[in-house]
Amino acid sequence: MFKRSSEIRNSVSITFEGQQIDAEDGESVAAALFAAGISGFRYAPENASLRGPYCMIGNCFECMVEIDGQGGRQACRERVRAGMAIRRHSGLPKPEAES
């Protein structure tokens, strides 16, 4: 779908659903995922359909992912940091009981 117009300058390593991805430090998480060929970012809770970014300006919330265990993060607004673990947002993270 998308490709980089120039090489990565400050490469950092992140993961998406456990798979390792090289990304540009500080770019938007959405850009990093697109550049790695990923287009489905979340499952809509209403009908479990796969969704991806639509507006890229923080309005549509279709780009929600889980970052380091926190669901509901907007991939168009979050910036890449080394070691980020990203997963698809299912819309339904399970609340954990207090241990």
Binding site: S90, G91, L92, P93, K94, P95
Partner: peptide, 11 residues
């Protein structure tokens, strides 16, 4: 005043 959260799985 009422607060509503995001959706989470049934718990």
């Amino acid at each position: 005043q009422v607060l509503v959260t995001e959706k989470v799985s049934e718990s």
